[in-house]
């Protein structure tokens, strides 16, 4: 049993290190994109009259930035005992809140294209399912743990039993499935409404909605499907 425990601890430490590397790679990508789009941000949003779109834009832009900066800063702090609980939960909470402006943007796109409040509300509700799922997972199943070994550092880890773990896979299915459904609804609305009006040039509003909407749908479909498949497979 002791050998099995040691193997489990090493596997856990290894998965934390892998996640941190992936997280840092994601942060670098985001930071790079932030820097190259900063001049466009200044021109399009700083100088323009503030609207609802401005609020949504800044929420999207700076919620993600604050998550990464906090995660980066906490990487330099050694948390012992259970001292990581409040800061880690705080970062995870903001990370979950990222989904709110994303859901707002999806709902606005749905409303702008269909002029149907019910449809727009459905897209919004489906898009915020990950918020509910993440909050339940974070505050019900994730508990502080001190991993013994070389680091002996405080970490937050899932403490669910194998039976509950199967339930957590259903959570992931619900969360990613609803996001895929919301994106699918949006792309259907976009294509149904705009394909007949695609004659506009490369710089038209309709062209941007079609091009960026389709790109967004394809990228997120691939990522959400990957997330879903890896979770079910594991």
């Amino acid at each position: 049993a002791r050998a099995a425990e040691i193997v489990a601890i090493i596997a856990e430490e290894d998965s934390i290190v892998s996640y941190n590397y992936c997280s840092m790679a994601g942060f670098v990508l985001y930071l790079y994109d932030y820097l190259i789009t900063f001049p466009a941000e200044a021109i399009c949003f700083w100088k323009a009259r503030p609207t609802g779109a401005t609020v949504l834009f800044f929420l999207t832009r700076y919620t993600t930035m604050s998550v990464f900066l906090l995660e980066f800063a906490f990487g330099f702090v050694t948390f012992t005992g259970t001292s990581c609980v409040i800061p880690t939960r705080f970062v995870n909470f903001i990370e979950t809140m990222q989904y709110l402006p994303w859901a707002g943007f999806s709902a606005l796109r749905a409303y702008a294209l269909s002029r149907n409040r019910l449809l727009s509300m459905m897209v919004f509700v489906l898009s915020i399912v990950p918020v509910a799922v993440n909050l339940v997972e974070e505050f019900v199943f994730v508990k502080p743990a001190v991993l013994p070994g070389t680091s002996s550092m405080c970490t937050l880890d899932g403490t669910e039993s194998p039976q509950v773990s199967i339930g957590c896979v259903s959570f992931t299915i619900a969360s990613r499935g609803s996001l895929i459904a919301a994106d699918a609804m949006l792309i259907v609305i976009t294509w149904a409404k705009l394909t007949r009006r695609r004659g506009g040039d490369g710089g038209s509003f309709v062209h941007v909605l079609l091009r960026d909407g389709t790109l967004y749908f394809i990228c997120l479909l691939v990522l959400n499907s990957l997330h879903l498949s890896f979770n079910i497979a594991s």
Partner: peptide, 26 residues
Amino acid sequence: SNVIAFSEPLTAILITRFMLNLQAVN
């Protein structure tokens, strides 16, 4: 869960670029 480490920043990048492009042509 490592996919999330990429999907969240990528989603944020796609949405901000989408909003910037819309604002630029509006």
